[in-house]
Design a protein around this nucleic acid. Structure first.
Lengths: 117, 117
DNA sequence: TTGAAAAATTCCTGACTGGCTATATAGTTC
DNA sequence: GAACTATATAGCCAGTCAGGAATTTTTCAA
């Protein structure tokens, strides 16, 4: 039996997912998956504006999905726990499976109805 | 080595997460975790308005996270694949760990600085 | 102290979205 | 067909949020 989501943490669960529900944030997190980076590096790597990156990193840090370390002028961010990677891997796997199912379905359709153009 | 998120599916990954990033949708999905239900049952179980539930279910179905089956007047929805449950379980586990860490931290603070009131 | 660099913050705007009410559609029963 | 039920849809409003430009804060170096 699987445990259900307790009411008390529903909002926090939603918050975590909401943080991952934005493509720009995913790109930022993907950049951090390769290792700790400062804001400037994330900016150049993602092509996003500095203000935007800073804002997103703040949100991610507040949600506890990213760690913050200050060193002189620069601030370094890194993934806090493997949760993010695990979640992304699961979802990516599902999407790949969906794509494969699509391909298979189309292959059958073509086999039955398709001819040479 | 972990595979990174391919650019081509970034938006779809974000969409899946975005679907889970709303407390109401989580409640709806939680209801479906117990098994297939028609819209009316989900409405009474979640306490949400009928129009809202219908809209959310439509979104979830479009995102491929919920299956739709029509039977006479009623429409039954069910979880399509175990992805949702897996994701929720992971996040819940993390939040519980965070809470435990908080408790532990506070315990130490009290042990050092706290006295009897 | 002045200047420069990195990051954060503020303000603004446009787009999106959750929830509501009312209405429409589809299917059943009489 | 008329009445009824279950679900879907349309329209509206308020709140939220991503992105950009400009400014501020923080820190280091000269």
């Amino acid at each position: 039996m699987r445990t259900t989501i307790p009411d008390e943490i529903l909002d926090r669960v939603a918050e975590k997912f909401r943080m991952l529900g934005d493509p720009t944030r995913l790109v930022i997190l993907r950049a951090l998956m390769a290792g700790e980076k400062n804001v400037g590096m994330v900016v150049t790597e993602t092509g996003q504006g500095q203000a935007n990156v800073s804002k997103h990193l703040k949100l991610l840090a507040e949600a506890g999905m990213v760690r913050r370390r200050k060193e002189g002028l620069q601030v370094f961010y890194s993934l806090g726990d493997p949760l993010v990677e695990d979640l992304c891997e699961l979802v990516c796997g599902t999407i790949v499976r969906e794509a494969q199912a699509d391909v298979e379905r189309n292959r059958k359709i073509l086999k039955t109805w398709g001819g040479r153009s």
